[in-house]
Design a binder for these strands. Structure first.
Length: 801
DNA sequence: GGGCGATGTCATGTC
DNA sequence: ATGACATGACATCGC
């Protein structure tokens, strides 16, 4: 069912994306808000009112442990978690409201009124969780559990916003702000600050024109969280009217860079290219990659590159590139893989409270975004928390290279009807990015189709914001890893250790999720018996096969400690030490598995011959059926055949001794007693079988350990995979950032170049190229393309270096 | 009554 | 050679 739901949800999302791409507005909100339980439950999961089976796994969570799946305490539990998360987020620079609030802010700024003009639908549509709340005031946070990955959201509950969005209380607190009624003074102040920032950045109020916004909203209403995220980021960047990257003025309509708008450039005549490059290198933090990236020739890109004042034409649309989409798809798949991983791990991974604390350790600004991402991972599309937090960033412009600051004002006012798209996130291009000698390839990366669903590449974003966003997203992934990792190894391990100390191990196992066989078992093995190499041996020592002296004295304990204990492997705890425990568990009364191979029955019999020893199976069975087993009954019941045989044969010592004594002592024992041949044969058989029994137990335990270790290995590999994916995205992000910087610097340098007559070089006709010796040439494009393979010997107008 | 898991036992191989 | 151990296969038991 879970898979069904997942597939259906994904399919629905994809279908919705498709519809959105072809211009059909898909108002998921209405569907969801119309209270179509099946659909909503399929997408968001059943509410706790219907079923809470999804929360069985909460037993594996730290906080959820001990809460019965059907306990009404669940709601309390989630409320507690939500509040706890809020407390944890106090140390973060985060606006308590969700992204919805951001929309509110801007929408209100449009009307220059209070945030009360917020439009619920478009926003809530972006937030599936919010949707749920809107029409389901009764819906408790527990409902989120129905999303199929409840722990995922709670695990990494940096997504406290998600909680709040879902929880009724959260609606009052956060959604309530959505309702504009509960704006606190801080909120209003923040709104005002944000608005003033926008104004300062040159974004006029017309920027927030409602029609534009609505248009954009339609784009953003695509269920695809990443896409809408893109849109949001784009809006944010555009709203700020600045390329926050600071490096590149952008035509608001085309996304094309507009070097001519750089103030002062026009007055600068023939700035030395070397100077420019020095400037460029000084400002361009290549970091480890350091060396100025080998320029690349991307012909398509180059041909389309023509950022000129006169033109101001949309170049981006001229660059339809299938590759970026492929890459986007790839990255999307990666994300989905991570999500799936998470979903898979959800059952295995307890919801570690630490994860939230871990979130708390992440960047203050990013935390909420992280949370949102989590929310989206919970199978609910969306989340655009970003813009709010971005907007709340103090002095984000400080990240800009100082030299670009002058551009801000002029650029920010740039009218814009479409979202600027600055960079590509083409991972496939990345490989070729620094390969050849044409800088334009890097400097003018292909513009991505606006409809592309690129999670990782949110190229439109100005750098500081995009950086923050991407980092937050990546941190999200890392948190995911952490949740998978630490949630499993620490929280769950410790929890299971607690379980080992509790009597609830059996019942826990009964609710054991089939999807998480390894988790408990692994933890059990780690906690109880650990690896087969360490604890096993110690246990074997305790068994006493080798320590003769202990055999007689420690016998009573052997049954509980000895060798292979199925209770430890399967139930984490099922001990015969205290049989009375079973009486407290009525449903276990009838359990009569023979776990007593190490119990000192025979020894007890040997040392207390007066004890009645069962003489036949039938007798034992009768007692089984009686279910009124006394302690003695249990002992009798577990008398092995060999013990009965030994008694029948009047063997004068216990089977324990027969089995566990070292050979020498065993032989001495035999010699000490004058035994008949049948007695000797029986004793030897008993010893053989007894040893083999323990050997079999150990063997099975080893098998189990092996399986557990393999499962752990699988888990580790999955975690590594997620980590590698995260790293990959980080690399992609950094490369994209570098490309953006290089591009803007290229524009900067190129725009300042002047020929002998002081005229600028038209970018459509010239491009910069690196030569092999490190010099930079400005070459005509026709030559560039025609003589790409030749050594550039042409147009050595400005030769640098 | 059969399936299934846990356990015991045997046969065999290895050290 | 012998004892201890490991392990696959099968049997038994109880649910």
């Amino acid at each position: 069912m879970l898979y069904l739901k997942k597939y259906f949800t994904e399919g629905l999302i994809q279908f919705t994306i498709l519809l959105s791409l072809i211009g059909v507005r898909v108002d998921v909100d209405t569907y969801l808000n119309n209270q179509l339980p099946p659909l909503r439950e399929i997408i968001l999961g059943p509410s706790s009112a219907y079923t809470q089976t999804q929360f069985h796994n909460l037993r594996n969570t730290l906080d959820g442990y001990g809460i019965h799946p059907k306990s009404v305490d669940l709601d309390h539990f989630f409320t507690t978690r939500r509040l706890l998360n809020q407390v944890r987020q106090l140390d973060r620079l985060s606006v308590p409201s969700t992204e919805l609030n951001t929309w509110l802010v801007h929408r209100d700024s449009e009307t220059v009124v209070s945030p009360s003009s917020q439009s619920g639908p478009s926003i809530t549509l972006e937030n599936g969780a919010g949707l749920e709340d809107v029409n389901n005031p009764d819906a408790t946070p527990a409902m989120r559990g129905g999303s199929g990955a409840p722990e995922s959201t709670y695990n990494l509950n940096a997504a406290d916003s998600s909680l709040g969005a879902v929880a009724p209380e959260g609606n009052q607190e956060q959604g309530g702000r959505d309702g504009n009624d509960d704006l606190t003074k801080e909120d209003i102040d923040l709104i005002d600050i944000l608005w003033r920032q926008d104004i300062d950045l040159g974004a006029g109020r017309e920027v927030f024109n409602y029609s534009n916004r609505q248009k954009e909203n339609e784009e953003e209403q695509k269920p695809n969280p990443h896409e809408s995220k893109d849109g949001n980021e784009e809006q944010e960047s555009w709203r700020n009217g600045v390329n926050l990257q600071g490096v590149q003025p952008v035509d608001g309509e085309t996304g094309e860079s507009i070097p001519e708008q750089l103030p002062g450039i026009g007055s600068q005549t023939s700035l030395s290219l070397q100077e420019c490059l020095r400037l460029l290198e000084a400002t361009f933090p290549f970091g480890e990659e350091s060396e100025f990236p080998a320029p690349v020739v991307n012909r398509e890109i180059v041909s389309n590159e023509a950022p000129s004042t006169s033109q101001g034409l949309p170049l981006a649309p001229l660059l339809p590139s299938a590759e970026p989409q492929l890459d986007l798809e790839q990255q999307w798949q990666d994300i989905m893989a991570i999500m799936e991983l998470q979903a898979m791990e959800v059952n295995n991974t307890s919801v570690p409270t630490n994860s939230s604390s871990v979130n708390g350790t992440t960047g203050t600004v990013e935390s909420n975004t992280v949370g949102n991402f989590e929310l989206s991972t919970g199978s609910t599309p969306v989340n655009q928390d970003v813009s709010l937090h971005q907007a709340s960033l103090p002095s984000c412009s400080q990240d800009f290279p100082q030299i670009f600051n002058p551009q801000l004002d002029s650029i920010s006012i740039t009218p814009r009807t479409t979202l600027p798209r600055l960079s590509s996130s083409n991972s496939s291009n990345i490989n070729s990015t620094f390969g050849t000698t044409n800088l334009t390839g890097i400097f003018l990366p292909p513009h991505i189709n606006s409809s592309s669903n690129n999670i990782t590449s949110t190229p439109i974003l100005p750098d500081p914001f995009s950086t923050l966003l991407e980092e937050s997203m990546l941190d999200e992934i890392s948190l995911l890893d952490l949740a998978m990792e630490e949630g499993f190894s620490q929280a769950q391990a410790s929890q299971l250790e607690d379980e080992l100390d509790s009597d609830s191990g059996l019942s826990l196992d009964s609710s054991h999720s089939p999807a998480s066989p390894s988790s408990s078992e692994t933890s059990c093995s780690s906690a109880a018996s650990s690896s087969s190499t360490s604890a096993t041996f110690s246990e074997e020592g305790a068994v006493g096969y080798s320590t003769d002296s202990e055999v007689t004295t420690v016998e009573p304990e052997e049954g509980a400690v000895g060798g292979y204990q199925p209770g430890y492997s399967k139930l984490c705890r099922m001990s015969y030490q205290d049989p009375s425990q079973f009486h407290s568990l009525p449903h276990l009364d009838s359990i009569s598995h023979n776990h007593t191979y190490n119990l000192p029955l025979s020894s007890a019999f040997a040392e207390h011959p007066e004890l009645p020893i069962p003489t036949g199976k039938k007798n034992v069975r009768d007692k089984h059926n009686s279910k009124l087993q006394t302690h003695q009954d249990l002992l009798d019941k577990h008398a092995s055949r060999d013990e009965r045989r030994a008694r029948a044969m009047k063997i004068p010592f216990s089977n324990e001794k027969i089995i566990n004594l070292p050979v020498e002592e065993f032989n001495e024992l035999l010699a000490k007693h004058h035994l008949s041949e049948p007695q000797l044969a029986l004793i030897r058989d008993i010893r053989r079988r007894g040893k083999n029994k323990m050997a079999a137990q150990n063997c099975r335990k080893r098998k189990l350990d092996t399986i557990i270790n393999l499962e752990q290995g699988v888990h580790d590999l999955r975690r590594d995979k997620a980590r590698l994916l995260k790293e990959k995205m980080e690399f992609i992000r950094s490369i994209r950032q570098m490309k953006q910087k290089v591009q803007s610097l290229y524009q900067e340098v190129f725009s300042q170049l002047r020929d002998e007559e002081g005229r600028p070089y038209p970018p459509s006709e010239y491009s910069l190229q690196y030569s092999a010796d490190g010099s930079v040439l400005i070459m005509p494009r026709c030559v560039t393309t025609a003589e790409q393979n030749r050594k550039p010997e042409k147009k050595q107008k400005d030769k640098k270096k």
